[in-house]
Design a protein around this nucleic acid. Sequence first.
DNA 1: GTTCCGATTCCCT
DNA 2: GGGAATCGGAACC
Length: 236
Amino acid sequence: MDFRSTPPVSRAFFGRPVLEVARDLLGRVVVHSPTGEDDDAVAVRLTEVEAYAGPGDPGSHAARGRTPRTAVMFGPPGHAYVYFSYGMHWCANLVCGPEGTASAVLLRAGEVVGGLDLARSRRPAARRDVDLARGPARLASALGLDKAQDGADLCAPTSALRVLDGPASSSSPEVLTGPRVGVSGEGGDGGRYPWRLWLAGEPTVSAYRVAAPRRRRAGSPTTSTTTRPTDEESAL
DNA sequence: GTTCCGATTCCCT
DNA sequence: GGGAATCGGAACC
């Protein structure tokens, strides 16, 4: 597979309202090749994303204003915001909107379409190939993303991490939306931000886990529930 | 300095 | 379907 011959999307692509960008990212291919060569590249076709607005969005890391960690989100669009979570996982976001809006799109799930063997070696726990990038931390792991890619420019032709330009999909895929995952309070289920977007009928879309307060060291049991998203959610 | 908690995953039951 | 693992950022004292 020849990823080098396909240029990345422009910065203007990212510099639009975050929901527009999130919608247009679905079906597109994200490539990470640390050396810039195709032989260590893993490519993922995005099937599920999540939009985060800026400081006014209670679910966003930018909700409490700019900090050293979130500084990338407040910068120009077209850069990666990669953060560490739960003491063991990396998750990748793409900074969107005009500079200063601090909006971003979380890459939640995708289908590995290139570098399958490398992705499998990075994700030995995955039993099926559809599980390789099903979930934000799994996706980041399959692509080989970590702190080193935080702040990376997605738009330079030589970027190690980029979103490929071109039609998002050969057909016109059906985009569905629902509440965001893992965001408690009004930012999550039932809130004003039903900003999780995915492609209908994709087996790589991650399971939906209802946001619930995590158990304290000796607290009450959690009531988290997982369900597969259905095609009965609101279409965009 | 100390504490709290998270945009989760995996393994075991 | 439940629970453990694990650590950095941000808040608080």
